[in-house]
Simulated assay, not measured.
Amino acid sequence: MTAYRTRLKQFSEVLGTDVVDMDKLRKLCFSGCPCESGYRSISWKLLLNYLPLKKNEWDSWKEKQRALYSQFVHEMIVKPGSTVNNKNNADVTMEDHPLNPNPDSEWGAYFKDNEMLVQIDKDCRRLCPDLFFFQRPTEYPCEEMVNASNKVETLRKRVEQCVLQSETVSRNWLGITNMMSSRKKAHEEYSVLSEGEEAHWEVVERILFIYAKLNPGLGYIQGMNEILGPIYYTFVNDPDVDCRRCAEADSFFCFTNLMSEIRDNFNKTMDDSDFGIGSMMKQLMQMLKEKDPACARKLEEQELKPQYYAFRYLTLLLSQEFPLPDVLRIWDSLLSDEKRFQFLITMCCAMLILLRSDILKDDFPTNMKLLQVSHFFFNFLFQKCFR
């Protein structure tokens, strides 16, 4: 208890100065942030270059950014022809209608967005399935989305409407034709919230959709939801009311800043470059050769390429290898790494060395399964190194 109070005092002193000393903050965060105090939220916002270093600028900066995000919501989550998007409240003309073949039409963009939205929706619904948090209703739902008087449909409803329901035709022994639906209703897969509520996964879905719209060159790529999840979870569970109420906007900008550093990992054209995920996997294998030549040689002999297992480790920042509470602790150290992302590569190397005894004795199929599904060993590593 004394050590914990000492750390709280250290964070209070560093974050209480007029200008935050980032070197001291990184050193503190690398050993873990006290989550109950709310210091993790503030620290991550600083480590992800969202908040300025001058404390007296925080309020004005957050107000400006949150207003900007609200503008994004109004401009990008609209339906063509709605009063929200039609300033003159005029009817949609024949120049822009759902059957308009012009790719630049609003309806054309709407249908194209729906194709991307289906994948985002699928990924966000199953975010952290072992944790019920993302299925629960948010404390501060987006008013533009849940207000029945607005004509802005929620993204969830857009997906439910755009996904066609396929049916199977069959005949029974009497020769009567039956039509059987092959798509489950939404309420059969997920609990339905009351009118005016929205689940946390819907908030994550909205953030990712807006990010994809603002970054058409990259768009949405599967796995981005796993990067956003820990950030949003941290902000929405902060004891400070203001942080919880504006968790969506703050998460968007922190996620955007983090993606600016790791977006090359999601870009397939960068896989073989000196800056993409291919480069990181080469660094990992080179480190393994230096630290454990026998283990590295065994993987090479079995042609167990790092693309089969390390691609996920590095791209998703280990968010799939540990339970979410442990991921938060790991990210304290990962985001504190000034040499991004050397700590990540070092930890992945340690994970492989932890499995060396099994790797050296097992065959290709067993090792493949071990490296892809090895939560027991990695949790052991976490307990040993971070607790």
Rank of each mutant, 00 (worst) to 15 (best):
E188L: 13
D59M: 05
F30W: 10
P306K: 01
K339M: 13
M287R: 13
Q302T: 00
R66W: 09
E63C: 08
C385Y: 15
R158F: 10
L46N: 10
L371G: 09
Y313I: 07
M1E: 02
V92P: 02
S170A: 10
C385V: 10
T177P: 04
P230Y: 08
Q161D: 06
R183K: 06
E261C: 09
D23C: 12
M224N: 05
E202A: 05
Q135K: 10
R183Y: 13
S181R: 13
N379R: 09
L328W: 00
W61K: 05
T177A: 07
A294H: 02
Y39Q: 09
K62R: 12
L314Y: 06
Q135S: 00
E75N: 12
L318M: 11
L117A: 09
N172C: 05
S336K: 04
K157R: 10
P80W: 03
V78K: 12
D337P: 01
V241E: 15
K298L: 02
S12E: 12
K112A: 14
L8N: 08
A186W: 14
C124N: 07
D18A: 01
H74F: 13
K27R: 13
T366D: 15
E248T: 10
L8K: 09
E198K: 08
D332W: 07
L46A: 09
A247M: 00
A296G: 01
Y39T: 02
G219M: 09
R329F: 02
K112S: 06
N367A: 04
C29M: 14
C246S: 14
V19P: 00
V204M: 15
Y211D: 07
P80M: 10
F378G: 00
R387P: 03
Q286E: 05
Y110A: 04
F376H: 08
D123Q: 03
T177E: 15
G108L: 01
Y4A: 13
L334R: 02
E95C: 09
V236W: 01
D362M: 08
Y211F: 15
N215W: 00
F322S: 11
L335I: 01
D337E: 01
C124A: 07
R312E: 13
F252V: 04
A249Q: 01
P101M: 03
P323T: 06
N102H: 11
C254T: 03
L318Q: 11
N237I: 04
